[in-house]
Simulated assay, not measured.
Amino acid sequence: MNILFVGDVFGSPGRHIVREHLPHVLETHAVDLLIINGENSAGGFGITPSIAEELFDLGAHVITTGNHIWDKKEIVEYMTVPANSHVRGRRVLRPANFAHGTPGFGLYEGELGNGTKYAVMNMQGRVFMASSDDPFRKADELLTMIERNTNAKVILLDFHAEATSEKAALGWYLDGRVTAVLGTHTHVPTADERLLHHGTAYQTDVGMSGPFDSIIGVETELVLKRFLTGMPGKFEAAKGNPKMCATLISCDGATGRAHHIQRIMLGE
Rank of each mutant, 00 (worst) to 15 (best):
G240A: 15
G43L: 05
N97K: 10
Y118F: 14
S214H: 11
H61K: 08
K138Q: 11
D158N: 08
M208C: 01
S12E: 06
R137G: 00
W70K: 01
S131Q: 00
I63D: 04
S250P: 14
E221C: 11
A238K: 15
L228I: 14
E77F: 10
A238V: 09
T190Y: 02
E109C: 11
E236T: 09
L228V: 04
H259G: 00
D213F: 08
G43M: 07
L157Q: 04
H260Y: 11
R137K: 07
A254Q: 15
M265I: 11
T102C: 04
H185A: 12
E147D: 13
E53D: 14
S165C: 09
G11D: 12
G38H: 00
F136H: 11
V31R: 13
G267F: 07
D134G: 05
K73P: 04
N40L: 05
V188K: 00
G101W: 08
E77G: 10
H29D: 12
K72V: 03
A168E: 02
H100L: 15
D205V: 02
A161L: 05
Q203P: 06
E109D: 01
P103H: 04
L33Q: 11
P23T: 13
G110V: 08
E147N: 13
C245S: 15
G253V: 02
L182K: 03
T190R: 00
L22I: 03
N97Y: 04
V18I: 14
A168M: 10
N97F: 04
S131F: 00
E77Q: 10
D175T: 12
D252C: 13
G125E: 01
R226N: 06
N114H: 12
A254K: 15
L143W: 13
G199R: 00
G199A: 01
G230A: 00
L107D: 07
V6F: 11
P232N: 12
H29F: 14
N40Y: 06
L26E: 03
A52I: 14
N149R: 10
L55R: 06
G207V: 09
I17F: 06
A42C: 04
Y173C: 05
V188I: 14
F128G: 04
T190M: 04
T186W: 09
A191Q: 01
E111V: 03
G43E: 05
T64A: 07
D133T: 01
A237D: 00
A52S: 15
